[in-house]
Design a protein around this nucleic acid. Structure first.
Lengths: 365, 365
DNA sequence: CTGTTAGCGCTTTCAA
DNA sequence: TTGAAAGCGCTAACAG
């Protein structure tokens, strides 16, 4: 494959002239310039970015580390970062961490060896080892949707109120028995669903009943099981807030399975607003996270720093919004009645792993 | 940042010894070896992959070009390639082509400049310019789900029968008026939905009625509009095959909007089996594409070639499967009746852009 | 306005 | 068993 020397030779100019016309980095007479361009063209010259990177110490590449592309939350985030990266002439390396802190650290190091200019990381939790690795890390990092306290990192988050509003919405509808299908892994992302839930109950003057707080693992199946467990409680909830849409969809399934109907018997609110949320029956009321904007913003923050447009640490909080669809409504007239008249004595079966009450469940996607 | 010279100095050995112990590329006495390792450790040495790549002419990086990560078909594909890449010590650069052939070509060239070792491309169509670009391309390419005739490229496809079986299924259920919601862009992926549709009708002894073939653009909204258009036809279909699940979901919406019910009044089959397909009401009967396996296989093919385990051109066809859920059933007793008794005179409104009949619609994802 | 040249940090002969 | 040294292809002083 032709290199700059070949082009220089063919154009009868020096190699540095070639470099300069190709990079528009200093004035070159139109004549030589054209000769260079022609030579490059006819030799099918392909500018070697590896050599350039070695010389300039910049790869024009960023790393993007997310838990899993397959999780419906992330494609839009990725799209956001890819769009701004592409636009700015950067290329992005995508990695799945599978929520494994050890793998996260390995990936960060691998990216550093590849000399990516910067990294966008959506951390799976508040792992101390990760934090430590981040400290002695010279590559710029922006954290996405994490409450990790990294003094060097830029951060993009959403408001912790994201978990407050859906519960308040439920309260405003008249619900007093409101359950939470949260998560077990501590230390993950903002907003902290349990905290928001508790704060909202408090604001509504409803005492928190630990029996109504169960922990799932953010899969649809766990949502189903948790819902069934909540329905089996002595004085079951008339509404439920799930930590993410996948679990909320599972809850919808559980409700149907118990012979009940949403929202008539039980209201459900989710979180994230993934594509699935708008095609369930009933369509899911949920908190829409600004996924695409999160990705874009993270990338903008990173590139601003890389391209020297900023040097102080930045932290931006993006707005969420409660999108009210049909899975929420007023509580049934007789609060704890099985109002369909159907027998639902079989509820609680079907799930082998019983969900476990938790007092401080925190969200993970 | 410390480089090999620093490590060599600290360990009191030559640079080449450092290189050899770090790469296990020739025997080094345990003593020196340990000294090198210790020095590297204490200097926090990070092996510079850029310099290495310049020297070895291999980047251990592959490019992955897909239409759009946000399209629910692709995350699993991406996951497949990332998994095998990661496993083999490769890193992947992800790019969205937005189905723009010009952008596809730009991306290919950008990846080539970055000297990726190989590229996995899911082309948006049979663009001649793309094909030409592919011809004079020295980087190995594997094509994913395309019928593009590239003599140099490895290929992973699925069977064209994927579009035959769902229509046959509909026929077996007793349907005679079967519509197709296809696509307008010619030349995209295997299996060719129109061809399969036509072949299946032929096998069923049903004449093809052009009035029942409409073209969408593979979005949910277009599926809705197409469905409404089909219902407005003189002798409307009792079943519909949609070129992808998104349009099939739209069709379900259109059916409901017309005051009808699936599958009682109209059966619907989709294609792809995206996550959404299993949570609609009714759940969607569809053709499951081996998305993850497609990604894995493409990556395996590529890496086998890159790592010298193969040199002949390869082409593999992966199996699909018809997954029958609740959106398909026997046709209504009175074929063309509006059996719900509801008035559906408002059908056809709501969509501003009328779908257009097509005689040779071909699929795009 | 253009050319010469010294590296960027590594791998890999070739020699000892 | 180890080391010296020649590049990989490019950028950016520096010199003219």
């Amino acid at each position: 494959m032709a290199d700059m020397r070949d082009v220089a030779r063919a154009a009868r100019v020096s190699i540095s002239t070639v470099s300069h016309v190709l990079n528009s980095t200093r004035f070159v007479s139109p004549e030589l310039r054209q000769r260079v361009l022609d030579a490059a063209e006819s030799l099918q010259y392909s500018h070697n970015a590896v050599a350039r990177s070695l010389r300039t110490r910049r790869t024009q590449t960023i790393g993007l580390v997310i838990p899993d592309v397959t999780n419906p939350f992330y494609p839009e985030v990725a799209r956001g970062v890819l769009d701004v990266a592409d636009q700015a002439g950067y290329t992005a390396v995508l990695c799945n961490s599978d929520r494994d802190p050890a793998k996260e650290i390995r990936l960060l190091q691998a990216l550093a060896r590849r000399r990516v200019d910067g990294i966008i990381l959506s951390p799976s939790g508040a792992d101390p080892a990760l934090l430590a690795a981040l400290e002695r890390f010279s590559t710029p990092v922006v954290l996405l949707g994490s409450r990790l306290e990294c003094p060097e990192c830029d951060v993009v988050r959403t408001s912790p109120r994201g978990a407050f509003e859906p519960v308040r919405h439920l309260g405003a509808l008249g619900h007093r028995r409101i359950g939470l299908i949260g998560g077990a892994q501590p230390g993950h992302d903002h907003p902290d669903k349990f905290t928001g839930y508790a704060a909202a109950l408090d604001a509504l003057g409803i005492p928190l009943d630990p029996a109504l707080v169960v922990a799932g693992d953010f899969t649809q199946e766990s949502g189903r099981r948790c819902m069934l467990a909540l329905l089996a409680v002595a004085d079951p909830p008339t509404a439920v807030f799930a930590g993410n849409d996948l679990m909320a969809i599972g809850a919808l399934l559980g409700i149907r399975e118990a012979g009940l109907k949403a929202p008539d018997d039980v209201s459900v609110v989710g979180f994230d607003d993934i594509p699935q949320a708008s095609i369930t029956t009933p369509r899911l009321t949920t908190v829409a996270m600004p996924k695409y904007a999160m990705g874009r913003t993270a990338a903008e923050l990173l590139l601003d720093r890389l391209d020297g447009r900023r040097s102080e640490r930045a932290s931006v909080e993006l707005p969420h919004s409660l999108v009210i669809r049909e899975s929420t409504g007023p509580p049934p007239a007789r609060p704890r009645a099985v109002s369909t008249g159907q027998d639902n004595s079989d509820r609680g079966s079907g799930g082998d792993q019983a969900p476990v009450p938790t007092n401080g469940g925190e969200p993970a996607r």
